[in-house]
Amino acid sequence: MKIPEGIKYSKDHEWVKMEGNLAYLGITDYAQDSLGDIVFIELPAEGDVLASGQPMGVVESVKAASDVYMPLSGTVKKVNNVLLDNPESINKDPYDSWMIAVEPTDASELETLLDHVEYKKLCAKL
């Protein structure tokens, strides 16, 4: 199970990577492994304003559909549309497969997220 250092994690198994003023979001290695083969995703539109905890997209494996939740509040600035045709890349490279980039509404929300040590502990308990 890969849990890289230097990025933040949510309890719902999303990762957050800050680059400049944008937060790139994706799902973790643990999440892709639990879902199995990902065959379909849905993403929000650029400009959507989403609150922390709100669904921002859907990831579907062969067996089931799962919501992906916003780990923080923000405005969608970029959408990784390439993933729509290659959802399997999330299985292969979950941390390179960012789904959207948002401009956070409240930078302090970042502090409420887990670091790699805390996230590792969370996964160990599951």
Partner: peptide, 22 residues
């Protein structure tokens, strides 16, 4: 095998992955 509950039974839902097995 990745074990799940199915109709009261503990059975593998997948081994190498659903697509590969299919």
């Amino acid at each position: 095998g990745k074990i799940i509950e199915f109709g009261g039974w503990a059975l593998p839902v997948q081994y190498s992955g659903v697509l590969d097995e299919h």
